[in-house]
Amino acid sequence: MNIFRFAGDMTHLISILVLLLKIYATKSCSGISLKTQELYAIVFVARYLDLFTDFISVYNTVMKLVFIGCSLAIVWCMRLHRVVRRTYNKDVDTFRHYFLVLGCFLLALFVHEKFTFQEVLWAFSIYLEAVAILPQLVLLQRSGNVDNLTVQYVFFLGAYRAFYILNWIYRYLTEPHFGRWIASVAGLVQTALYADFFYYYFISWKNNAKLQLPA
């Protein structure tokens, strides 16, 4: 465990807690893409299949349970909570995310580390995570001005993967057998997707204005 990875996991945890806070405190999920949350739930379930077979550390197991639990809780909240679900505006959350799931699964069938059930699903979850934010970014683009908590949620989510890239560079330099190409390339793509969002976030933060995304 290196500091980059720990910082990445913590910012990832913060992003999820910010989202839960926003939904719980405001009893509203306006500005949040349910499709992105569903994609993240799929990512965590597909990736953490080894939860009961490979014990790596208490930290690893606890964090996996937290990530799976929170992502399912957010999807449950947005779909079924009697107050919150009424604030979900499905007319703006129109990204056809099932194509993302299909595309990533097909890619995982061809590009993976080993052709086993667990490894193919692991690669699938890595690819899917790289594009899972798209419905949320499209929704932000559509709804123009968004509330701060949503912006912070996306910001922390982007920061987490950026820390992981530093972690992969560090591990590549320090561990002889470390070759995590699938995750590193997908992680770069994922962080690149956030880059333009980060740019506008930084501009709005510098001008102390609300986030204005180009329509």
């Binding site: 990875r5 996991d9 990832h12 990736r47 080894d50 490979d54 790596i56 690893n60 964090m63 996996k64 990530f67 580390e113 080993k114 692991w122 992981y164 972690n167 057998h177 070759g179 995590r180 995750a183």
Partner: peptide, 10 residues
């Protein structure tokens, strides 16, 4: 050495 095949990252 055979690289340990587990994913130790989240």
């Amino acid at each position: 050495s055979q690289e340990v095949k587990y994913h130790d990252e989240l």
